[in-house]
Amino acid sequence: MFPRPIQTQPRAAQITYQALLPLALIMWLAPLIAVAIFSIKPDVDFTTGNYWGLPSSFEAATNYGKVFFASDMPRYMLNSFLITVPTVIGAVALSCMAGFALGVYRFKSNIWIFFMFVAGNFVPFQILMVPVRDLTLDLGLYNTKTGLVLFHIAFQTGFCTLFMRNFIRQLPFPLIEAARVEGVAEWRIFWYVVLPLMKPALAALAVLIFTFIWNDYFWAVVLTQGPESQPVTAGITSFNAQYRAAYHLMSAGSIVAAIPPVAMFFLMQKHFIAGLTLGAVK
């Protein structure tokens, strides 16, 4: 059952494939299509039960206008950037250094330290909820963007270090040895030899972490409250009113919130796929 090119299949199979492909695609995309359609519908369509039909009036300008000008969405978006960008920089910087140390130096507890980073990835993050909340409270970081950033950096560094260490291990070691023979200081080796070689890994990891953090909802809800610190994923729920859910505004808000990671994906597509497979084969 290896996938064989569809061109080599019999004609009947080709026709079935061509007929089913769009169908499967539409079914798979149905929720996204629904959100897109909902975002240009007026509120009244949800009360009259017009979920899938044509909008009774096109309200794209009104809905998106409300999202941008009559809600806290711009603030939430800004928060998301202020949380995501420092996290990406922090996690990648730390893991580069940790990865370098674990990948290049041979010392006694090397493998155990490395295992600790790996093991951190196996901890289900939900069980950290209560202790982390208490910790941020005690540190006075509860309901601040800094608190969220610090936690994300700490938690993401585990995965990032695994990724970076494996990447550095694959680099030709003679390069480093050659530099040492020349008498280059260790930090210069890191900066001028290893770091330039890591550029593809840096890009891939940055894209990956950006989408992880941008899409985080759990910690946003646990560690922050209110528009002064919450990122956009948590902010979308503010369209839920006292009695009614404003489906049309939530849809429009979701689309807006999804733009940065989607844009990131398309702009950096090459790195993204590289990132998914980079650590896979050693």
Binding site: E228, T237, S238, N240
Partner: peptide
């Protein structure tokens, strides 16, 4: 004044 989503 801080307004928080009703469910949250």
């Amino acid at each position: 004044t801080t307004v928080i989503d009703r469910e949250a």
